[in-house]
């Protein structure tokens, strides 16, 4: 099978079989890539990896110790590759992959013996080291939030995805993501001791269930 894929390092996949794809993933584009990958097309699976690796990284980071995440991301994609034939609705790839990632994180704790996570750097040694230590400390605060808020905040603040991108990749509605972001950020500010004064219009949007940007 001949496949044409153009991958732009900054924006992800742009062309597939001569069709220009949107910068953000869409379920139709996913379906085409999944079908090709299922037929053994490595480039198509590579394109799916490019699109979804940050989502998987974020979901794992919300659950397992940071130093373990990189290896587990690879595991998740290898599992997905092996089980791709069981995915009946190719357009639902994002949600399906997210579930594999969540299950892999659960397995991680089931299999691992009790070990104490050592800090990656000793704070105070250098500017970069203390910066990373602070980042890990804030990450721990985020990980103490309820799961729904934790995932969404990490995808937004660590992985740099926007709310609409999070909704598209995880299969959640934009309204759910927006509520999770708003309430999660509110709880995070409280726990970090930062004042929170939401604008009146944002609160109204949330109460109306409106996303305001769709």
């Amino acid at each position: 099978m001949s496949v044409e894929i153009t991958i732009d390092a900054s924006a992800g996949i742009r062309q597939f079989r001569g069709v220009t794809l949107p910068a953000a993933p869409s379920s139709h584009a996913d379906a085409a890539l999944v079908l090709a990958a299922r037929d053994g097309d490595r480039a198509a699976f590579g394109a799916l990896y490019t699109r979804y690796s940050c989502m998987v990284h974020g979901l794992l980071l919300a659950r397992v110790p940071a130093p373990e995440v990189a290896d587990l991301v690879q595991d998740v994609f290898l599992q997905a590759m092996r089980r791709l034939h069981t995915l009946r609705e190719p357009a639902a790839f994002g949600g399906w992959l997210a579930m594999i990632a969540r299950n892999r994180a659960t397995d991680f704790f089931r299999r691992s013996t009790d070990t104490e996570e050592l800090p990656e750097e000793i704070p105070g040694r250098s500017g970069a080291a203390s910066h990373r230590a602070e980042a890990l400390a804030v990450l721990e605060v985020i990980k103490s939030l309820p799961e729904a808020y934790r995932e969404t905040l990490i995808l937004r603040l660590v992985e740099g995805l926007t709310g609409p991108e999070i909704a598209e990749r995880t299969g959640l509605t934009a309204a759910s993501v927006r509520v999770n972001l708003h309430r999660g950020m509110k709880q995070l500010r409280e726990r970090l001791g930062v004042a929170d004064t939401p604008p009146a219009d944002a609160t109204k949007d949330l109460q109306d269930g409106s996303t305001g940007h769709e």
Partner: peptide, 15 residues
Amino acid sequence: LLGTLREDLPAPAFE
């Protein structure tokens, strides 16, 4: 701050 935890991971060798 948290963006420093992002990782650009190479894709594994898919079979």
